[in-house]
């Protein structure tokens, strides 16, 4: 198991190199001059040129990228062009907000998705199944930003029950968490249902019934554990995705999280901040996935025996 985890961590290196290279290229190719951005529209051309030289922006592309990698390996990701703060200090100060929102969103999604999926599968083609499948379809089809706006319109503007955005008390959490939770819940419901339907037809479920096991135990003990693997994968992916900052939702609800940090950094062509945020997101995502893979071993002994 330890060896497996170590190997997985080693695999992070090429992933990060690839991710940073792509982001660096995109930032390099997009129009706009960071030096100009820092000094402002009206700055004299010589001053801008001097700053460009100072920041190394006139060097060839690969040289710039190489310098970035070298600094990154020493843990130096630089300072934000706009705030002049250490980029990772900025990210870490934003992360708790994102973590809280993502956790609550996934919690809602799991609490709705798994039970509804199980009931839908055990009562296939029933009214409950039809209604929950239609609801799930709507859930996955609704774009997050639109759903967020609609919730704001209903609960903040018309009813005036909940704040339309910002960060603070529990009331601030409800709408964004609900926005994130419902679309994830829809995906998890569908996954749980289809996975359960597949498992419930297996021979070992018939064996369990032939032993005289009651239907509740058949579902909760014999079927669920087998059906959970693909569900765990989806929950993990959703969580990883939300941890990277749900960019649209955070923007709609002016949530001070990592997602909005990234959007603002892109707008201001704040290359160090964009780079660091993307590296951070990639690492978080990889760690969540690693966690999911380790979790598999506890659910399925066949997978455990492969982690040698």
């Amino acid at each position: 198991m330890h060896k497996y985890v170590f190997r997985r961590l080693l695999m992070l290196i090429p992933v990060l190199l690839g991710v940073t290279f792509i982001v660096f290229s995109i930032m390099y190719m997009t129009p706009g001059d960071p030096a100009q951005m820092i000094l402002g529209e009206k700055a004299p051309a010589e001053a801008v040129e001097r700053l460009r030289e100072e920041m190394g922006l006139n060097d060839p592309f690969l040289m710039q990228y190489g310098r970035f990698v070298k600094n990154a390996m020493m843990g130096k990701f630089g300072r934000s062009y706009t705030t002049n703060r250490e980029v990772f200090a900025e990210i870490f100060s934003r992360f708790p907000a994102t973590l809280q929102l993502a956790s609550l969103g996934v919690l809602i999604a799991v609490a709705i998705g798994i039970p509804v999926g199980i009931i839908s599968a055990t009562k296939q083609y029933s009214l409950f199944d039809s209604i929950s499948m239609i609801a799930a379809l709507i859930g996955v089809s609704m774009p997050n930003f639109w759903q967020g706006l609609m919730l704001i319109l209903l609960f903040s503007v018309y009813l005036g029950w909940l704040p339309s955005g910002g960060y603070g008390g529990f009331a601030n959490f409800i709408l964004p968490a609900l926005t994130l939770g419902t679309s994830s819940a829809a995906i998890i419901t569908r996954m749980t249902r289809s996975s359960m339907l597949e498992v419930i037809r297996q021979d070992y479920i018939r064996t369990a019934r032939a032993k005289g096991v009651n239907e509740k135990t058949v579902v909760n003990k014999h079927a669920l554990k087998n059906a959970l693997i693909p569900v765990i994968t989806v929950v993990g992916l959703q969580f990883g995705y939300l941890l990277g900052g749900a960019v649209l939702t955070e923007t709609v609800f002016s949530w001070p999280g990592v997602g909005r940090l990234l959007v603002d950094a892109i707008k201001q062509k704040d290359t160090p901040m964009v780079q660091a945020t993307v590296v951070f997101i990639a690492v978080t995502f990889s760690f969540v996935n690693l966690g999911v893979d380790i979790l598999y071993a506890f659910v399925d002994p066949r997978i455990k025996s492969q982690y040698k």
Partner: peptide, 20 residues
């Protein structure tokens, strides 16, 4: 079921629950 009448199924590869 399983008490007075029990059954042995055709394919032992799939008749046992893999996670128990």
């Amino acid at each position: 079921r399983g008490n007075k009448i029990s059954m042995i199924f055709q394919d032992p590869m799939t008749s046992l629950n893999p996670v128990l």
